[in-house]
Design a protein around this nucleic acid. Sequence first.
DNA 1: ACGTGATGACTCC
DNA 2: TGGAGTCCCTCACG
Length: 551
Amino acid sequence: MATIRKKREAAVVVKEMTPENLEATVRRSSRNALAPKRLRYSPEVETPKKKRKAKTVTENGSQNKKPMDEKDDDDDDENSDVEQASNGYGVLSAYELERLENIRQNQAFLSSINLLQATEEFKQLTRPKPSQRGLTRAHAAVKEVLPSRKSLRLQKKEATILELPPEPTGTLIYEQSVKKSPGPLPMDLINMEEGNKLPPQLLELCSEDSKEEKKMQLNLKEYTSTLKNMKLNEDKVAKVVKDRIFSAAFHPCTSSLLMAAGDKWGKVGLWKLGGDWGDDGVLLFEPHTRPVSCMAFSTSHPTQLLSLSYDGSLRCMDVEKAVFDDVYDIEDGLKTFDFMSHDCSTLVVGNFYGDVAIVDRRTPGNSHESLHTLDPKTVRCVSVHPLQKQYFVVAESKVVSIYDSRRLKKTKSQAVSQLHGHSLSITGAYFSPCTGNRVLTSCMDNNIRIYDTSAMTTKCPLLTTIRHYMQTGRWLTKLSAVWDPKQEDCFVVGSMMKPRRVQVFHESGRPQHSFMDSENLSTVLSVTAFHPTRNALLGGSASGRIHVFSD
DNA sequence: ACGTGATGACTCC
DNA sequence: TGGAGTCCCTCACG
């Protein structure tokens, strides 16, 4: 009796196999399993049903229906049960006929989704050789040279009684990586021989007058076709920093593609695609000692790159002066910043402890800073409204709020507006680049959300929710969706999906393009950024490599 | 208030 | 060559 019951249950499982749970099964059955070929985006979610009506779409129609799946125990037996069917029982009952028919249908479905083709694609990804372009191995892995040692036994000496080292405490670990000294630091190239000077062409490129008229925004169709023309190749991958990338940015110049990336150990790398200086165009610096979590080139002075680190320093690389100047400094825990004025002289800075500071760079030191405690836990992202610079959006630990910098108080500042609906911590919140009429948020609850902030009332309405798997785990930089500065209504986000990809969505939730490359992209690109004027997109990986898709 | 487990990609032996 | 070890303020859950 027990076996019959088991068979019946199994049959139900097979019968209920839908694209969604099939994919879940495929994903679970092997860690390296490849998702079946993308199912077409279902058209009914494309068309907005009602004005102001928030909608939820899943990526490509059905992706990640159950991303945070607990271990379902119902699917472990599926395969074995299908096998049992082929053993056969002498007489086929109506039930068994139905079951065989189900199996047939499922096999037809499996072949229809091109699992074989997908497997082929996957095989290409199993043996990727990381790009050797950029920082060389010797530079990439600086090994401490220790004096050669000989054991006491070989020295024919008496063994001594060893003493245990003192218990390490939480703070001790971080005392080892002390912050760099204050004041201007020279821009020493740490991937070059000592005494090597900055290449003069770098200053030339950085000061390039790129004040070309901002292109007219393309319609969606044209935009998507430009995305499709942006390709990766082996020359467009390079190791730019030694360790995992936490932040990256494009320099606004247009004659070449110049990029910056910051890594886990305070390094900042500059890479000119196809450049002939440094290691394949890479120059490496070390202005910080801990993760460089945020960076941006000054839009008013493009020879300046501002970078901020967990070590508590916010510095300004000035290629003209060849130094890193101090901009702002606290003990530790800086997380995020954005420019508050067009001339980039004022900034809003957020830290781990839930404060934001308004920093005026024209007054040296921290004297003119004003600190405001917002959240008891943390501030993860700040973004200033592109037109009304007094407004800035803050991703606090579990809420997203918009504040008015003119109405901040030391504590308990009243938010102008709050964006509700996030159930777990929020990794990013950004105003749309041209009008500021939208805010794009990324949340650990596996949703990307878009809010309408055009009215800036106390509650901004939620427009779109997109399912997007955000569980990068401990070793990867958190994913965060960011707008394309050229296109008011489209954004880019990295993805955990295999084959690895970077995805561009329209604010309606509709996928516009997936950037993939079976030969040159095999890792998760957590950090992504579009070029401010050119058709170029960068993605940074956990091994310090930047990948550039461009036309 | 802890303690724990999951997660990807590299390096080293 | 492959598989174990490493990752160093993560997050969410129990």
